[in-house]
Every structure is written in C-alpha cells, then in structure tokens.
Amino acid sequence: MTVFVCAECDAVLSVPLSQVAFPAHGRLRLGHGFLPALMEQGTYAVDPEPTGPPWRRWSDISEEEAVARGVFAPVSALSFGDPGAIVVAPGDTRGTVLIPERCDGCCFGLDGRDGPNLACEQCGQPVATRIDDCSLWQEVRFAPRAVRPTPARDAAPHTVNWRALAAEVPGTPPIDPCGGWNPQWTAAAGVTLAHLVAASDGAPLAVPDGPVADTFRRTLDALLRQGRPAKTVALAGPGLPAPEPTPDILLVPQHPRTGKAWQPPGSARAVPLAAEVWMHLAFPNEGLPVPATGRLPDGVLRDDPLPMHPWGMFRPDSTPFRYTLARLPAVRQPWLRKIYDGG
C-alpha cells in the first residue's frame, strides 16, 4: 500500500492505495454524459504515456522526435508532457484545492487543458490535474515530479500471483446493464487486436470457435489477407491445459496489478489480453440460476433476470486499436501501415 505526499512539503495527498495496471479503456471518450471514476476506490495506476500540455501537431514533429516518444505512425497530436502520471479516483485524494484560473473544460466540467488544476493545500504547489468533463472518465492525475510515494503505515502488503488469478479477478461481463457492449471489453479487445494483427505478419489467423471467435474472428478476417497459410491462435494461461498442438500465437492474461503478460512455455508468441476479459473467455460462466429440472412452485414469480443480449454484433474499439498500433514498431511495415491508414 502506498500514500502519495507532496514533494515540496510532505503533506499527505492520498489515502493508502494499491497499484494496478493502467486500464485499457482509460483513454476512451464515451457519449456526451458524465462517466464514473476510471479507477476503483483504493487503487492507483501509472500511465506510462506522456499526458497533458504542451501538445504539438503531427506536422510540427520530426520522425525522430515521434520515435523517441514511442510513436511510429501519424497521430493528430502528441503530448510533450511528462510520462508516468499517477492516476487515482477523485475520492481518494486528500489535502488538495482547486486552482480557479486552470479550471477550464470543453463542456460540463474540467478537462485538464491548462495543466495541473489542483494544488497542495498546505504549500500551494500545483500537484495534480482533476478531470471530470463529459465523455471523460473521472480521475485525478498526480504529476510524477510533484508527488512522492511513501509506504502506508500499518498496511499489510497485498500481492496477486498467477495462481490466485481466478479468485482475485472475476471475469468482466461483455454486456453492460443497458444492453450495450461493455467499454472495458471493446477497449481491451481493441488493444489486443492491434497485437494480434502485428503478430500475424500479414497472414490470416485461425481462432478457435466460441467466445474467442465471437470477439475477434470477424474483425481479423476483414483486416488480414486470405489465401495464405493461416496462423493458429489459442487461449493459454493459469488454470488452462496446454493447447495441443502448440499454436503459433497464444492469447495470455495481463497481470491485473503489474500489467505484465503471463509467459507461456515454449516458443509460441504471446499476445496480452486484459485479465478481466481473459477470465471470461477462458472460464465463461454459463451456469443456470435455477435447477435445470423441475419448475417453480405455483404462485412464485420468477425474480432472476434473463440473460443480457447486446444491441448489435461485437466490434473491438477502433480508438485503442489505432492508439496501440501506432506505438508498435511493426506498424512501419508497408502491409501493417496500410491497415493503420485504413482504420
């Protein structure tokens, strides 16, 4: 557990927090209403990408500058802010005050366009950016140079190992309560799709029937050329038997806290997938809420909800797909750049 304090005066700026991987859906803009907090209460994540001002247009950036920032294909603009922002839920901050002259936004709230808009209450040093505008996840981003992590007092360390994955990380349902596809699913699928396409080397990919095919097959078939020998894809990870024969590409879970991918034995190429989505694909929960035989007694009304059905067919989100693809060196290959430019 970690508490973040002001680097200038050591004032406490957060509650005790446990680190988790940065969410795949963290950069999505959704709809035109208020979104919930990006981070779960009591957790924080480090965004490895530069964020915030100053921003520079792609036309004003040299190829060498873009590559130095890990971008290998054109984007609309790049942040030249510091990487490594510490992202927390707004309710987990302490001892901060708004900086009124930096509270601009696009619509109903704050979007961080002017840089840090939260200051340390004790010393007045700008320390973080509050974001809560419409279509944006609610979050507070501590500037990495403005805060310092310290161990929380009397807090037992909490670790998650691969063996405990099933107990610690329940599978995220693919459909939200409103009947639409869960944005965590579409975003995670978009990130993984970029890695799958890059790993294909331009060959078609044969995915197993079932949830994996429902998630990826239609889009992969549309993006990759047919007619070449197909590469095989399968799920692998803790709790699953090793697939036989060994496929060319394995879909493996990312550790929910470190973000590192599970490493399979052998030479098959591993492609990461968010642990919450991987759990649902690997161990789909299709159990009946009532016994399969018999019937409800007379006079008893059914009170369990019917299974949710989506409004349309599943599509991985194109925003995280393109975001991830632009940051893979393989996108400089002509066949993959063509897919990127057409997306």
Rank of each mutant, 00 (worst) to 15 (best):
T43G: 10
G95V: 12
G33H: 07
G42M: 09
T51M: 04
P50V: 15
P54Q: 08
R113T: 00
R102Y: 04
G91V: 08
A37H: 05
G42H: 12
R56C: 03
F80Q: 14
E65K: 09
P50Q: 14
T51K: 11
H32W: 08
V88N: 14
S62R: 13
D60R: 09
W55V: 08
A66I: 11
C107N: 00
R113V: 00
M39T: 04
E101H: 05
A73Q: 14
A68V: 10
V97T: 15
P54L: 15
P53H: 07
G109E: 02
V87C: 13
A73N: 11
P53G: 04
G95Q: 05
G52V: 03
G105L: 03
P74D: 10
I61D: 12
D92G: 12
R113Y: 00
L118M: 02
Y44N: 12
G91C: 12
C107Q: 01
P50G: 15
P83V: 01
G112E: 01
G81N: 03
T96N: 06
D82Q: 07
G95A: 02
V71Y: 05
S76M: 14
G31Q: 04
H32I: 02
G112S: 03
V88P: 04
V97P: 09
L38T: 08
F80W: 02
V71D: 08
H32S: 04
A89N: 05
T93P: 14
A73T: 09
V87E: 04
A77F: 10
P54N: 10
G91R: 09
S76Q: 15
G91L: 12
D104P: 02
F80R: 13
L35H: 05
I61E: 08
G84W: 00
E101I: 01
S62P: 00
I86D: 02
G70E: 07
G115P: 02
P74V: 11
F80D: 08
A66L: 12
S76E: 13
W58E: 13
V67Q: 13
G52P: 12
P54D: 10
G112Y: 00
E64C: 13
L78W: 10
A68F: 13
R69N: 14
P116R: 06
A73K: 14
P36H: 15
L35R: 08
G31E: 05
W55C: 00
D114V: 14
Y44I: 06
C107M: 01
F34I: 03
I86W: 04
A119S: 08
D111K: 00
G31D: 09
L118V: 05
V75C: 03
I99Y: 04
D114F: 05
I86T: 04
N117K: 08
M39D: 06
P53M: 03
R57P: 04
D60Y: 12
G115C: 02
S79F: 02
C107P: 01
L38V: 06
E49A: 09
G105Q: 00
S79T: 06
G70I: 03
V87K: 01
G52Y: 02
A77K: 00
A68D: 15
P48L: 07
I61Q: 06
G81L: 00
F80T: 15
D111G: 01
G112V: 00
P54A: 11
T43Q: 11
F72S: 13
F108V: 01
A77L: 06
V87G: 12
C103H: 12
L35P: 08
A89S: 12
A45G: 02
P36D: 15
R113H: 03
R113N: 00
V46S: 10
E40R: 10
L98G: 07
V75K: 08
C106G: 14
